[in-house]
Structures are given as C-alpha cells and as structure tokens.
Computed example of a mutant assay.
Amino acid sequence: MGRKLRIEVLRYNPLDPASTPHMQTYHLEEHPSMTLFVALMQIRETQDPTLQFDFCCRAGICGSCGMVINGRPGLACCTQTRDLPDHIVLHPLPVFKLVGDLSVDTGSWFRNVGTRIESWIHNNKTFDENAQEDRMENELAVQIFELDRCIECGCCIAACGTARMREDFMGATTINRMARFCLDPRDNRDVQDFYELIGNDQGVFGCMGLLGCEDVCPKKLPLQDQLGIMRRMLALHSVKNIIPRSILNKMEKKCGCQDKHK
C-alpha cells in the first residue's frame, strides 16, 4: 500500500461571478513512480471533473503544467510525488493571467515580450527556399542550442521577485532569448540595437539578482550567466564614450558578445 496523499488545490473561476478563491482538499493513494500530473489526472477522472489544470506533452517539453508546488514553481509532469511530503499544496503560477484553478495564460505573456524584443532573426538577406542553410561552427551551434532550450513554462517568471512586483519587467527568459540572438551570426543587430530593447529597468538592469529564476528552471538553463553577460555588455556600451578605449578593451574581454558586436 502506498502513502495516503492529501492534496490541497486553490480553486477559483474568474469567469464565474459566484466563484471565490478557496482551497479544496483531495485524498488519494500514492502509486509507485506517480507524478503530480498523474495524481491530478486521477483526481479529475475519479473525484472532480471540474478541476482545471493545463497539460500537453507530459514529458517536460511543452511547459504547460507549470504550477506552484508547496511554494515552489515547477512542472507537474516532472515532479514525483515520492519527492514531496504527503501533504501537497498547489497554487497557480503568479504574474500570469488566471484562467481557472491551476490554469494560467502564459502564452499571451510570452507573445507580448517576444514582440517587445523582436524575437526573430534580423538580416537583409532575401529568402531563397533553394539556398543551403547558413553554416556555423559546431561549438557555436551548441551554445545557441543551449539557450534555445527554453520551453516557456513560466516557472522562472513566477519565481522572480521583480516580476512579482512589476508588470513591465521582461524576466530572465526574455534576456536569455536576447543572448541567443546576440550569439547568432545570422542576426545583424549590433549592441546599440540590443541596448534599445533591453538596456533599461524593464530588461537587464531591473534584475535584483535573487537567483530564483535559475533555481527553479526545469531545463537548468544558465539564466544568471546570460543575464550577467548581457548586462555587462550593455553597461559597457552605455559608457563607451566616457571610459578610455584601452580600459574598455580590457573590460570587454570578459564579455561574451564583444567579438561579434563592436
């Protein structure tokens, strides 16, 4: 016999005027290798079909099942119940618009910031469907792929102190996205272009450095490393006309993007 799990879920339907936020408790027996996603599905199939939560891939790829699990943002499909106490408390991710219960609208948020930072390759080449793909060194391709693994689950945003206080903050995942374009040789934007997009309090200079984003990232992305690289690059760019070039050159050696964007 497995443990008896007590799962408390925040219930609220913002579209129902009669609905009020409240915690509802469910009980079920734990099975070997049970994930939190499986537990929620079992609750919905056998106890309460009205329970709302999002899912798609069930393999930690789509990022749909992000929620706050015992106070910590995470993915339900990647969370084993055996790693949790028998009393589990679930809340929807903060910052994002609540759809109902544990379901939030991360898509609109990411679409908005993607538009703000112009999240696409910028160049003047005319598209030729018959042309070969642009080639790059394997090492560089691996670096870009590392930053491109973000599944936009929203966990890093939910764990961000600045994002919790300010609706205009773009968050670590957005800055990570910009670092990916900074590395990409196919993107013709220079440092000034990046500075105009994220060189402000809503971007790289708004982070308080609490490391919550990287701590909860299910893909273990180097979010703080990329924040540091981009912030250093843009900070140096902002004082390039003040600091002597000889000193600036020495400082730029520590910046990850200076070779491409001088």
Score class of each variant (00 low, 15 high):
residue 28 L to H: 13
residue 66 G to C: 05
residue 87 H to V: 15
residue 223 L to E: 11
residue 98 L to C: 07
residue 92 P to I: 09
residue 159 A to I: 06
residue 216 V to N: 03
residue 183 L to H: 04
residue 188 N to H: 12
residue 75 L to I: 05
residue 163 A to F: 03
residue 242 I to S: 13
residue 170 M to D: 04
residue 93 L to S: 07
residue 139 E to T: 14
residue 82 R to S: 14
residue 228 G to W: 12
residue 79 T to H: 08
residue 3 R to A: 10
residue 71 G to Q: 12
residue 140 L to E: 14
residue 188 N to L: 12
residue 199 G to R: 01
residue 94 P to H: 08
residue 76 A to R: 07
residue 116 R to P: 00
residue 168 D to L: 01
residue 47 Q to N: 07
residue 79 T to E: 07
residue 54 D to I: 00
residue 38 V to D: 15
residue 189 R to I: 09
residue 36 L to K: 05
residue 249 N to P: 00
residue 42 Q to P: 00
residue 69 I to N: 11
residue 126 T to Y: 09
residue 46 T to K: 12
residue 173 T to W: 00
residue 33 S to P: 00
residue 211 L to W: 05
residue 17 P to S: 11
residue 108 S to T: 14
residue 106 T to R: 14
residue 107 G to L: 11
residue 75 L to C: 04
residue 48 D to Y: 03
residue 39 A to V: 11
residue 106 T to C: 11
residue 116 R to Q: 14
residue 147 L to T: 13
residue 198 I to W: 04
residue 48 D to E: 12
residue 26 Y to G: 05
residue 39 A to H: 03
residue 105 D to T: 09
residue 255 C to A: 15
residue 175 I to N: 03
residue 196 E to R: 13
residue 193 D to Y: 14
residue 151 I to M: 13
residue 193 D to T: 09
residue 237 H to N: 15
residue 225 D to M: 10
residue 162 T to P: 03
residue 126 T to S: 06
residue 79 T to M: 05
residue 75 L to G: 07
residue 74 G to H: 08
residue 157 I to N: 10
residue 136 M to W: 06
residue 2 G to L: 02
residue 129 E to C: 04
residue 87 H to G: 10
residue 181 F to P: 01
residue 262 K to D: 14
residue 214 E to N: 02
residue 62 C to N: 05
residue 32 P to C: 05
residue 25 T to K: 12
residue 105 D to C: 04
residue 174 T to K: 03
residue 131 A to M: 06
residue 79 T to G: 06
residue 155 C to V: 03
residue 19 S to N: 06
residue 90 L to N: 10
residue 55 F to I: 09
residue 245 R to V: 15
residue 193 D to W: 11
residue 98 L to I: 14
residue 114 G to P: 04
residue 234 L to W: 13
residue 167 E to L: 01
residue 235 A to V: 09
residue 144 I to Y: 11
residue 176 N to Y: 01
residue 21 P to A: 06
residue 102 L to W: 09
residue 154 G to S: 08
residue 128 D to L: 05
residue 73 P to Y: 10
residue 79 T to I: 08
residue 52 Q to E: 13
residue 84 L to P: 03
residue 218 P to S: 02
residue 106 T to M: 11
residue 73 P to D: 11
residue 170 M to P: 03
residue 173 T to I: 09
residue 253 K to V: 06
residue 161 G to E: 12
residue 101 D to T: 04
residue 247 I to A: 12
residue 226 Q to S: 08
residue 1 M to N: 07
residue 42 Q to F: 02
residue 21 P to H: 06
residue 157 I to W: 05
residue 24 Q to I: 08
residue 17 P to M: 04
residue 208 M to R: 12
residue 110 F to M: 04
residue 36 L to A: 06
residue 44 R to F: 03
residue 145 F to Q: 14
residue 212 G to W: 01
residue 242 I to A: 13
residue 228 G to V: 15
residue 25 T to Q: 13
residue 155 C to D: 07
residue 1 M to F: 03
residue 65 C to A: 13
residue 225 D to G: 04
residue 35 T to F: 03
residue 129 E to M: 10
residue 116 R to M: 05
residue 204 V to P: 02
residue 33 S to G: 01
residue 29 E to N: 12
residue 164 R to W: 02
residue 204 V to F: 06
residue 51 L to V: 05
residue 56 C to P: 00
residue 147 L to W: 02
residue 203 G to Q: 08
residue 190 D to F: 05
